[in-house]
Simulated scan of single mutants.
Amino acid sequence: MHRTFKAAIGALASVAMIALTSAPAYAVSTAPAKDSAPAYFVMTDYTRNEFVVKLDKPADIEHARELLSGQTTDRPHILGRIKHNTASYNPRWSYHLAPETIGFFDVAIEVCDATIPYVEDYLDEAGGAFLPGNVWCDWSSRLVREVPAPQ
């Protein structure tokens, strides 16, 4: 019985995490501003692999630039929902993050944590028990630089 209770609590925590991460509370709008261009940033994790994310919300772009400049250390890690296909700006990987779902975090629950290459290796399992709801929150993620928009 105790094991069943722990499993139920774990499942509830997973659902809560997905619900809470689907729309970051700090964002004024989840839609990109009509007059702003998206920005592209390289993130890495402890594996030192690089992964490009496309940010299209002005508040997120500003936050990313503040992280890179050292103006802030708040919410340094990246989370979002995985799309199971390659993006033109991130050709090395078979997946990318949907720009409209990307946010930043300080701490997150373990169910969404995985490294960049681990997600690639187990991409066919993402969305089920592995990364429920396709929510990915690499605990060791950090931005390393901004890159130009792809041509």
Score class of each variant (00 low, 15 high):
32 P>I: 15
34 K>V: 12
36 S>F: 05
37 A>W: 01
38 P>K: 01
38 P>R: 00
39 A>Q: 14
39 A>C: 11
40 Y>F: 15
42 V>Q: 10
44 T>E: 08
44 T>V: 07
44 T>M: 06
44 T>P: 02
45 D>Y: 09
45 D>E: 08
48 R>D: 08
49 N>F: 11
50 E>L: 04
52 V>I: 12
55 L>S: 07
56 D>P: 01
57 K>D: 04
58 P>S: 14
58 P>F: 01
63 H>S: 08
64 A>K: 02
64 A>M: 02
66 E>K: 15
67 L>A: 13
68 L>S: 10
69 S>I: 01
71 Q>A: 14
72 T>R: 10
72 T>H: 09
73 T>P: 05
75 R>Y: 13
76 P>H: 09
76 P>Y: 10
80 G>D: 05
83 K>E: 15
83 K>P: 00
87 A>E: 08
88 S>N: 12
88 S>I: 15
89 Y>L: 01
89 Y>A: 02
89 Y>E: 03
90 N>T: 02
90 N>Q: 08
91 P>E: 11
95 Y>S: 01
95 Y>K: 00
97 L>G: 04
99 P>H: 04
104 F>D: 06
105 F>W: 05
106 D>W: 09
108 A>K: 07
108 A>H: 14
113 D>N: 15
113 D>R: 06
114 A>S: 15
114 A>W: 07
115 T>G: 07
116 I>W: 01
116 I>L: 03
117 P>Q: 04
117 P>V: 11
118 Y>N: 04
119 V>N: 06
119 V>Y: 03
122 Y>N: 15
122 Y>H: 14
126 A>V: 12
128 G>W: 05
129 A>V: 13
130 F>D: 13
131 L>K: 07
131 L>H: 05
133 G>C: 01
134 N>A: 08
135 V>H: 01
136 W>G: 07
138 D>K: 05
138 D>F: 04
138 D>C: 15
139 W>Y: 13
139 W>M: 09
140 S>C: 03
142 R>E: 11
